[in-house]
Amino acid sequence: MVSADYETILVDHRKGVATITLNRPPVNALTPRVLEDILSALDDLEKRAETRCVVLTGSGTKAFCAGADLKAVGDGVGTGTQFRDLGRAVVDRLETFPKPIISALRGWCIGGGFAIGMACDVRLASTTAVFRTGDAYLGVIPSWGMSLTRLTHFIGRNRALDLLILGEDLNAEAALGVGLVTRVVPDESFETEVAQVADRVATGSPITFRAIKETIRAQYAFSPAAAQALETHWAEIGGASEDLKEGIAAFREKRAPVFRGR
């Protein structure tokens, strides 16, 4: 089932998986409207109980997202606060969204596209994917809270500096080697692999996934002590949950669990 309630994206529902598709071919360039649509869709999907996993992808095969639409945002790419604030809001929302988010990355993944793709929890790359963090060669300061803030926590100081200072294109295998992506999939089987991974994730415990996302983020956003406090908080919630009882019963009965998030 496809929703047509948004101007620049498509939202498709299949079982427990919802797919957000950036729909501005050929390269799915970002504008304030696109970012607003993503935020709106995430708000809707958080409330939708049937949605257990979200896939973020781009239309076509040329690009997941080639960054900002320079014609649409003009000088705002480097100096405007609206575009920056919306970009930061999307990165933050993807990272703190209570359900797992998978980015499905084909073709170019550049600039703002790189930021939102890396903010997702699992990052699947087609063999056609190409990554670039070449802001220094455009005179742009990356300011969406990814390249200058999160990236060093994600892949380490030296690798982050290599990417940002050299600004060279990375193919999918090189991106896997530095820890940017989860796995690389042949393009001819990419959609099938994305669907299989998303279907599996959609069967996991919503309580456990929320605990994982919040506690892992707290390691760098706050402190190890804050992360440990969250771990204890979620362990107490999980320990009293119906989902834990269901998981144990399903294991004993050698069947797939049916989690309800409570």
Rank of each mutant, 00 (worst) to 15 (best):
R217T: 09
A195T: 10
V201A: 01
I141H: 05
D199M: 12
T232N: 14
T192G: 09
I101H: 02
A136P: 05
A229F: 11
G204L: 10
S223D: 08
L161A: 12
A218H: 05
L163K: 11
G112A: 06
I216S: 13
I212G: 02
G139T: 12
D169M: 13
S147G: 02
P142Y: 11
L176M: 07
F190W: 03
V185M: 01
H233G: 00
A175N: 01
R157I: 12
F209L: 07
L166D: 13
G167T: 04
G113W: 13
N158P: 07
H153R: 01
T127N: 01
Y220V: 09
Y137S: 14
L151T: 03
P100W: 05
I116V: 08
V181I: 14
A225K: 11
M146H: 14
A221M: 12
D187N: 15
T149H: 12
N158W: 11
F222W: 10
V194W: 01
R183D: 11
G107I: 13
G204W: 14
C120Q: 05
V140T: 09
R132G: 10
S147Q: 06
Y220C: 06
E168F: 13
L105W: 10
T203I: 04
P142D: 10
V130N: 03
P224Q: 03
E193M: 08
I165K: 07
I165T: 08
G111R: 06
A104N: 00
D169E: 15
I155E: 00
G167M: 06
A104D: 00
S147T: 05
S189R: 14
E188F: 01
A136G: 09
E214P: 04
S126E: 02
A104F: 00
S126N: 03
F154A: 13
E173W: 09
Y137V: 11
P224F: 03
R200E: 13
E231F: 13
A218L: 02
T152S: 11
A227G: 08
L164A: 05
L124R: 04
L148Y: 06
R132V: 15
S147H: 04
I155T: 01
S103C: 00
R132N: 12
G156K: 04
L170G: 01
E95C: 02
F190K: 01
I207W: 14
R150C: 08
G179S: 02
T96F: 06
T203Y: 07
A202T: 07
A229T: 11
K99W: 00
A198F: 09
D162I: 08
E193L: 04
T203A: 07
H233V: 02
V181A: 05
E193H: 09
R150I: 08
P98Q: 07
F154M: 15
F154Q: 14
G117V: 04
F209A: 12
